[in-house]
Amino acid sequence: MSIQVASSIPSARASSVPKERKMFSLGPVAIGWGLLLAVYAGLRLYQGAFSFEYGLDATSPEFATYWMTLFKVEVPLIFGSGLCVWMYLWFTRDRDMDSMSGETELKRYFGLIAWFMMYTFSFLWIASFFGEGDATWHQTVIRDTALTPSHIVVFYACVPMYIVFGVSSLLYATTRIPAFARGYSLPLIMAVLGPGLILPNLGFNEWGHAFWMTEEIFSHPLHWGFPILGWTGLALGGLFIQVIGRMAELFKEVGGTADNANPA
């Protein structure tokens, strides 16, 4: 889904705009959240109905029907949708950053924040909701496959989902906002790449579980890659500096300076 706030704003200096227009529209974000919520709720209900019923034995035909089908559908579907969004963002990129108006730039910063509202929202579902839910499964049943009903949801639906939004945020910034188009933003790359690396980190996780860890301890060093990569989310601090620093300038540039601007 696209929540572009400002890509079609005509270039015009703020001072010449007679009528105030909204800088940010919550609508697209709310729709995006609603859709994501429906997907996550659907996945949770699916787990509730079929995890213990058909998910305990990975060798059974029911497992193949109910769980492997979900796995085979969700991965290409999510990454395929993501690819479409990424291509859209790329091919509609701003090819003339130099002549961008302050107002357009400001709106695009709001647009970037909208993307981050989606990204952080989607990250929440793996980091908190389905993440701890994974313990519910693996600490209570016998693990017999890397693709358990819990993993099929938390790792192969939720992780691709936030990767889609993370990369989209990165692409939105680099294709539409001058500062991010002129240099690689270290915190932006960290905040997108770090959590994204959780997907390949699964290789280590499953290797350990396949060969030498017969029972589940969540706090085991085998799992420490997940929190460490999660910490890269802290890089949003650096991104806030880049974004808010420029927005503070743009507030003055576009909104004008207050008459009583002198410090008290």
């Binding site: 270290l186 915190p187 601090g237 500096i241 880049q242």
Partner: peptide, 8 residues
């Protein structure tokens, strides 16, 4: 984490 660097 509050490093706000842009790489050239």
């Amino acid at each position: 984490a509050c490093n706000a660097r842009f790489f050239p």
